[in-house]
Design a protein around this nucleic acid. Structure first.
Lengths: 210, 210
DNA sequence: GGTTGACTAGACTAAACGGTCAACTATTCG
DNA sequence: CGAATAGTTGACCGTTTAGTCTAGTCAACC
């Protein structure tokens, strides 16, 4: 009973947008409230603090955007290495689209927030969530790498290590794209990814339209 | 004439330390003054703002730490690919040392600050400096890659593109190490770097002590 | 239609923040 | 010495900030 509200969702969306456009540290609770058109009283009705909201917003992003997309791209019905190259290609498209619409290449919020908050002792809740999200993503990479190994399309090696390296490469190039505000850097990612996992052939399937 | 002071240098050092340990956005001018044991009046005698100080501090770091080290590691008297692997090996040692002393793997401040401030319109002075520092570092990579190409020890390809990829990989793995607070991830960097630049042989010279 | 519980509004506080200022101090040069 | 230069100090100001609290509104269900 009582009335229902989507103010909490508006707050999470607003927080994520602002974190993406600026940074976690640069935005205030007032900023978030303003963007979400929610008053402070309601903010504190739903969330305890900015970091509490950030954790919820990141989890929401994962469930609503990242997971469905990755489930689709990393479907076992696709060739293992093609899963990776397709995923990275769509990542380029996504960032290029952002650049076209907002004029900004925004990169990956998990990486940005992580780098910003993980060493800060007070924000441990965020740190935990960030590491959790990293792990979840890495599992998709690892699974594809394992399948590629079984298939014999990549050089032997520890799948976990290869997945960590791949994740590092992706996040690094993505952050560079953000800093330089240039999505074009991401174009080379599919090929670089194949290199890093030790693919025997460097053909990147759907890159024919380059 | 008049009296002399090193307060400006103490401020730059303090700012860099704090940025490294926390983040650019998380620290305040008061924090920096406290750490440097300098009063606010003196701060504004030397600098206009936090971002002004940050720009000066980053430039100072480059001149005093990064450049001498890179000039040494990327000396043309060393084999091109060995320059890269040696550099990355020393990077691991450095971060492992930080972890031992401060309990924290701090990563690269240029990357952290860059990701944090580059999309924010107000902080353009920092953004410009960050991109400048990135470019300077990339030049060392590019030069080594060009030499390796001439020598025939890597597969053909555009040196600039290869350098960008290498920089992305390094910064990505470094940021991951920061987020996970685990320098061990960096151990694989020399080998990964060789892969990414397309080295024909994957031998990493001084990694025999692993 | 009245009660209950979910949500909203916004004024309020105390602390922290960026930034200013005028008075003060130390050093150096003539 | 004394004047000019270079740097220091801490009080002070207005604003922004996170966070609280109370009074009120709205929807649902009985």
């Amino acid at each position: 009973m009582g009335r229902t509200s989507d103010a909490n969702e508006r707050l999470m969306d607003a927080a994520l947008d602002l974190i993406w456009e600026e940074s976690y540290g640069a935005i205030t609770i007032d900023d978030i409230c303003k963007r979400a058109d929610v008053k402070k009283g309601s903010f504190y009705y739903f969330f305890d603090s900015k970091s509490d909201l950030a954790v919820a917003a990141l989890e929401r992003m994962w469930l609503q955007e990242s997971k469905p997309k990755m489930d689709n791209m990393f479907s076992p019905s696709v060739e293992p290495l093609t899963r990776i190259t397709n995923y990275l290609h769509s990542m380029y498209e996504f960032q290029a689209e952002l650049k076209r619409k907002h004029g900004k290449t925004l990169g990956c919020p998990v990486m940005s927030v992580g780098s910003e908050t993980c060493t800060c002792a007070e924000e441990t809740a965020i740190g935990t969530k960030i590491r959790e999200l990293f792990t979840r993503k890495r599992r998709y990479y690892e699974s594809a790498i394992r399948d590629a190994l079984a298939e014999g399309s990549i050089e032997p090696g520890d799948p976990a290590e290869k997945a960590t390296a791949l994740a590092g490469l992706i996040e690094g190039i993505l952050t560079q794209a953000r800093i330089l505000n240039n999505p074009e850097i991401l174009r080379s990612l599919p090929e670089l990814a194949l290199r890093i996992v030790g693919a025997k052939s460097l053909a990147t399937a759907p890159t024919t339209k380059s």
